[in-house]
């Protein structure tokens, strides 16, 4: 499912993830960790591919279209669990 989110909002999600979360998501989805980083705006396309992330100018750092929300949903889940534990 496609999702539209601002770049700064996506960055806030990434910044709220505990250390090691990128690797956890990559392992769960059997993906390269660079691909997960690229999903959050990383640019190592040689290692991680493009993962359906594209950015266009707009409010709050720009508008990001994500072709698939699996990684984002997983990130929200990890953040929610972290808050529960804290």
């Amino acid at each position: 499912m496609t999702k539209i989110i601002t770049f700064n909002e996506l960055r806030r999600v990434k910044d709220n993830l505990p250390d090691g979360s990128m690797q956890i998501i990559a392992d769960r989805l059997n993906m390269n960790v660079e691909a997960v980083r690229n999903y959050f705006g990383g640019t190592n396309y040689k290692e991680g591919g493009t993962v359906g992330f594209h950015l266009e100018p707009g409010p709050d750092g720009g508008i990001v279209t994500l072709d698939d929300t699996t990684i984002l949903d997983m990130a929200y889940e990890i953040i929610a669990k972290t808050k529960e534990i804290a």
Partner: peptide
């Protein structure tokens, strides 16, 4: 503030 956040878009381009 909004102008600055709009201008940030180019920082995402390697």
């Amino acid at each position: 503030t909004k102008l600055r956040s709009e201008l940030e878009v180019t920082t995402a381009i390697p």
